[in-house]
């Protein structure tokens, strides 16, 4: 891999660029998610871009920094209510569309980032057992 170890992160160039561009990536993901109705995009795409922003943090700064920013319990606490509100909106039809789009974005973003965290931790435990 290009970077040395999963715990240390990449070089200082990558860290600086990540620090500069992270806010723009997050804003772009929220924009794609919120304006999905009238322009290309949507909640799913915006959520994937948000997950990519956190994957970016994890690849550049290492696993510990990303997990310090977004813990697994926080992921669960955010994803559960969002899924519940989305289910409520589908069942009753009384939840506004914008809140539905935000909920879909949150579910997809946190879900894909959780899958990536789980894969990284699983591969690390594989390396320890070898």
């Amino acid at each position: 891999m290009v970077y040395k170890s999963p715990n240390k992160g990449m070089t200082v160039i990558v860290k600086t660029v990540t620090r500069l561009t992270l806010a723009f990536i997050l804003i772009y993901g929220i924009y794609i998610g919120m304006t999905g109705g009238v322009s290309p995009g949507g909640g799913f795409t915006g959520g994937v871009i948000l997950a990519l922003a956190f994957v970016h943090i994890m690849l550049a700064f290492g696993k510990e920094a990303a997990l310090r920013k977004l813990r697994a319990n926080t992921l669960r606490m955010v994803m559960g209510p969002a899924a519940f509100i989305f289910l409520l909106g589908v069942a009753t039809g009384r939840v506004p569309e914008e809140i539905g789009a935000i909920c879909e974005m949150v579910i997809v973003g946190t879900g894909l980032f959780a899958i990536f965290i789980a894969l990284v931790l699983a591969s690390k435990s594989d390396r320890n057992s070898e």
Binding site: F86, E97, V108, A118
Partner: peptide, 30 residues
């Protein structure tokens, strides 16, 4: 926002299935 209206009112079950598949995958991986 007519497309979002259609997405939430008419195609809601489709989107629910999409999100449910992802949610199940996340719960299993966690």
């Amino acid at each position: 926002n007519l497309v979002a209206t259609i997405l939430m009112k008419t195609r809601a079950i489709d989107t629910l299935g999409e999100v449910a598949a992802l949610f199940t995958a996340v719960v299993g991986v966690l």
